[in-house]
Amino acid sequence: MRKLVVVGAALCLALAGCNSATVDSEPPQETEVAPLERESDAPTSAEETTSSAAKSKSQEDRGAREISEIPSAEVPEPEAKYLGKLKDAGVNVDGVEDQLLGAGQAACDENEVTISAVAGQLVEQNRTKMSFEELSKLITDSARTGIC
């Protein structure tokens, strides 16, 4: 009797699962998008001519411009000193200044998780020869004396 119940339950589950596993062989239906209507470019008065010319000039589509370098932002003095301490201790801070400033702020907020994450990344990226523990302590101490 138990075998019959187990077999029946397994059969019901198998059939119930088949319903959601089917694939429709019908191709997807295409939908059309109505074309946009454009306003007439003909001005109705001299005043509108001047305002529409100024408007089109300000809304002109400009192509992308190539830049040769990323613009540098001024780093406030306390943050610059903090980064300088890390650099003087042998940490390569080039390109990861934002992460280090975030870790410094985390040190001020006593957020050990962020400090550990940044320190671990720096060690794995070979940006320092310090151990993980030494670097974590350096980040914490430098931040608390410099930017907190």
Rank of each mutant, 00 (worst) to 15 (best):
E48D: 07
E48S: 01
E48A: 02
T49E: 11
T49V: 15
T50E: 13
T50P: 06
T50K: 11
S51W: 05
S52I: 12
A53I: 09
A54R: 12
A54I: 13
K55C: 06
K55Q: 12
K55F: 08
S58G: 10
E60A: 05
E60Q: 03
D61H: 05
D61P: 07
R62P: 03
R62I: 08
A64I: 02
R65I: 09
R65D: 11
E66K: 05
E66N: 08
I67S: 04
I67P: 03
S68K: 15
S68T: 15
S68G: 15
I70K: 03
I70V: 13
I70N: 00
I70M: 00
P71E: 07
S72W: 05
A73H: 07
V75I: 07
V75P: 08
P78M: 07
P78D: 02
E79M: 10
A80N: 00
K81C: 01
K81G: 05
Y82A: 02
L83G: 08
G84Q: 14
G84M: 04
G84F: 09
K85Y: 15
L86Y: 02
L86V: 09
D88A: 03
D88I: 07
A89R: 05
G90L: 00
G90F: 09
G90N: 04
V91W: 08
V91Q: 00
V91H: 04
N92K: 13
N92I: 14
V93A: 06
D94W: 13
G95K: 04
G95T: 04
V96Y: 10
V96C: 00
V96S: 05
V96H: 06
E97W: 06
D98W: 06
D98F: 12
G102H: 03
A103T: 01
A103Y: 00
G104F: 03
Q105I: 10
A106G: 02
A106W: 09
A107G: 10
A107S: 10
C108Y: 07
N111G: 01
E112R: 12
E112S: 15
E112Q: 15
V113D: 15
T114M: 14
T114C: 11
I115S: 00
I115R: 08
S116R: 14
S116C: 11
S116Q: 15
S116M: 12
A117N: 13
V118C: 02
A119I: 04
G120D: 10
Q121K: 12
Q125A: 11
N126F: 13
R127A: 11
R127Y: 01
R127K: 11
T128V: 06
T128A: 10
K129A: 13
M130P: 11
M130V: 07
S131Y: 03
F132D: 15
E133I: 10
E133N: 11
E134M: 01
L135V: 08
S136T: 06
K137D: 12
L138C: 03
L138M: 07
I139K: 11
T140I: 11
T140D: 09
T140V: 11
D141N: 14
D141A: 11
D141Y: 04
D141M: 06
S142Y: 05
S142K: 03
S142L: 03
S142I: 03
S142T: 09
S142Q: 01
S142W: 05
